[in-house]
Design a protein around this nucleic acid. Structure first.
Length: 272
DNA sequence: GCCCAGGTGATTA
DNA sequence: TAATCACCTGGG
């Protein structure tokens, strides 16, 4: 089936934007994404035109939402303050990035693992976790692995978790899973919480500080007002904004502005 | 061998 | 409140 996307949509940039760690560009030029028990391959075939290997029904019910295609990112870029030259340049360079609507539990575990790890190391650890405990799913005769369920992770010992290159994060994961089960927390019930209450709740998990909580809120709950401040963004704040947090000027879309700055700073280094 | 990688939690002053 | 440090592990 073919789909048309006229708004910002660059799959390379989305994969490299650091919000997802299981998506891949394949050797045949296709991009592969996984969410829940679904997988899709997307092949760009002409400007704005893509070939996808799922039904129209699945695209509309799963992937259209996943890629946040009802949001106008061009319009969001155009809302950037003209005086904010750095963000203007960052957004122009990074246009095509979208915030994926990912699973909140997967994001919680993923970003606990992410701390003090390089992106390839995060991908490696998540991959090992899926190999260890992910359900095998078939998509058109091709097998792939879902992200492990909370029940599966609950049954893993510390040693088994550590065998997935989690290091000291293994105990964070185990304690977080224990807390979820003991308190019978349903993370998808938290969609009604305010941004502030959500982040506060997330920070009650062991191994979740303000940075990870904001990542989970932004990528797992689509809280686009949350801008996680990591080492890269902190560099930008020091180098460009004289130590002042630039996101206070963008209360609604701070998280999207953060993505533009993060990608730009990592890709091209110090620019003012 | 040394340092850093999309941090957090504990300790200290 | 702010500064300092240990923590697993892989890669340059």
């Amino acid at each position: 089936m073919q789909i048309t996307v006229t708004d910002d949509f660059n799959l390379d940039k989305i994969i490299k934007s650091g919000q997802c760690f299981r998506a891949e560009k394949l050797v045949d030029g296709k991009y592969r994404f996984i969410t829940g028990k679904h997988m899709v391959h997307i092949l760009p075939i002409a400007p704005f035109l893509y070939e996808v290997d799922c039904s129209k029904n699945e695209w509309n019910s799963i992937w259209h939402t996943y890629f946040d295609l009802d949001t106008n990112y061009k319009k969001i870029r155009e809302s950037i303050d003209n005086a904010d030259v750095y963000l203007q340049k960052a957004a122009e360079y990074s246009k095509g990035i979208r915030i994926l609507r990912q699973d909140s539990f997967e994001m919680l575990i993923t970003f606990i693992i992410s701390q003090r790890k390089s992106i390839p190391a995060i991908r490696d650890a998540i991959n090992k976790l899926c190999i260890y405990g992910g359900e095998k799913i078939f998509h058109k005769n091709e097998e792939f692995l879902a992200f492990p369920t909370i029940e599966t992770l609950h049954q893993m010992t510390i040693e088994e978790l550590k065998s997935c290159s989690l290091g000291y994060r293994a105990s964070y994961i185990q304690k977080t899973i224990d807390l979820l089960i003991q308190k019978q927390i349903h993370m998808n019930h938290w969609t009604n919480l305010s941004d502030e209450d959500l982040v506060e709740k997330l920070m009650e998990f062991p191994g979740v500080g303000i940075k990870v909580a904001n990542c989970v809120a932004l990528f797992g709950y689509y809280r686009v007002s949350r801008a996680p401040i990591d080492v890269w963004i902190d560099r930008v704040i020091q180098e460009v904004y004289e130590g002042n947090n630039p996101f206070t000027s963008y209360p609604v879309y701070a998280g999207i502005m953060q993505q533009y700055m993060f990608y730009y700073r990592r890709e091209i280094g110090v620019q003012k």
